[in-house]
């Protein structure tokens, strides 16, 4: 079983490496780049919403703060994007701490309201501090990264750069999920009282999960700015935050590999369902809605159990025939 999983992973990795050569156009490369960034952000969301089961509907707001921090440092102050990236991580850390504290007092729907309010406030501030952020006009000319004086151009080089980043974050996420932290995240959502009696500091662990989620989102935001070269506050709206939770749900809540599948499905589906034209969004939301109600364990697990069920049914039938 383990070797089969490894083979699938290697095949997927090879596919990811040759993908940009098969679809070599600016549009597709930007789409693939966005997919990779979304994967990184869903990894982060998985800690807080997937494992500790605290709803975060302000992901787009955190992402926006990361994106603007990095982009403003590099466009207005002329600093290297690498410094911007570090600054975004730092800001993510601070936001995570800040959003984590409310989560100690409130939970469930109240927490989701707080995170929605946070996202809306961020968007309003970005929209109206025109002299700094460019407001609704947007922020242009976000520079690209360079390594040892060589610029990583947008397009195929930047795709590989993001792919490396995604793999690094994937490795980090799986390590964290399997570590003491990851088990503590799961424990406090399964049974907080039992977890506390075993010596887990719930407050500390909750804030830790929030901080990790915010760092991932801020990092994703900074990379998003570098990928697009252009930022606009209206991108980071409530719908964007919802999409991340949909990715999480589709992949199966709490499963790191599932996060990748969810992010790919939600980001690429518009391409596959392009023939639906204007009806695409209605179809997509309807599918996601039915999925939420009928397959709460995620699509991959749902499809697997469906396949098993069919196999058992047909197996029974053939036994009867024989």
């Amino acid at each position: 079983m383990k070797s089969r999983k490894n083979i699938i992973s290697i095949v997927c990795l090879i596919a990811a490496v040759i993908l940009p050569w098969l679809f070599n156009s600016t549009y597709y490369l930007s789409l693939f780049g966005q997919t990779l960034i979304n994967i990184i952000i869903v990894f982060g969301l998985n800690f807080i919403t997937g494992l500790t089961r605290n709803m975060n509907l302000g992901t787009a707001g955190i992402m926006a703060v990361g994106a603007y921090t990095s982009a403003l440092l590099s466009t207005r102050l002329g600093l290297s994007p690498w410094i911007g990236l570090v600054a975004a991580i730092l800001v993510g850390f601070l936001i995570g701490r800040g959003l984590g504290y409310p989560s100690l007092r409130i939970s469930g729907v109240y927490l989701s309201l707080t995170t929605i309010a946070f996202g809306e406030i961020v968007r309003l501030v970005l929209n109206n501090t025109t002299s700094v952020t460019g407001g609704a006009q947007g922020l242009t000319n976000v520079p690209v990264f360079s390594i040892f004086g060589i610029q990583i151009q947008r397009g195929i080089p930047f795709y590989y750069f993001l792919l490396l980043f995604m793999l690094l974050m994937f490795w980090l996420s799986t390590r964290i999920v399997r570590s003491k932290w990851g088990r503590a995240f799961k424990a406090i959502s399964d049974n907080p009282d039992a977890a506390e009696s075993l010596g887990i500091d719930i407050a500390k662990i909750k804030i830790l999960a929030f901080t990790l989620a915010a760092i991932y989102a801020a990092l994703g935001g900074a990379l998003y700015g570098n990928l697009m070269g252009y930022l606009n506050p209206s991108t980071f709206n409530f719908d964007f935050s919802i999409n991340f939770v949909i990715m999480l749900m589709i992949g199966g809540i709490g499963i790191v590999r599932g996060n990748i599948i969810g992010a790919i499905v939600v980001t690429m589906l518009p391409e596959l369902l392009r023939f639906l034209g204007d009806y695409y969004q209605l179809v997509f939301y309807t599918i996601a809605f039915i999925g939420a109600i009928k397959l709460p364990q995620g699509w991959p697990a749902g499809i697997a159990s469906l396949a098993k069920w069919i196999a058992r049914k047909t197996g029974l039938k053939s036994r009867k025939e024989g």
């Binding site: 089961r53 919802i242 749900m249 809540i253 969004q281 209605l282 809605f289 939420a292 109600i293 709460p296």
Partner: peptide, 27 residues
């Protein structure tokens, strides 16, 4: 259907229902 499910699904279920209505109106 959502009454017996966990918070994440109840929140997302109603949000997605809202998005369906929104798209229907837009179309």
């Amino acid at each position: 259907p959502l009454r017996k499910m966990t918070t994440i699904f109840t929140i997302m279920g109603t949000i997605l229902f809202g998005k369906m209505i929104y798209e229907l109106i837009r179309l």
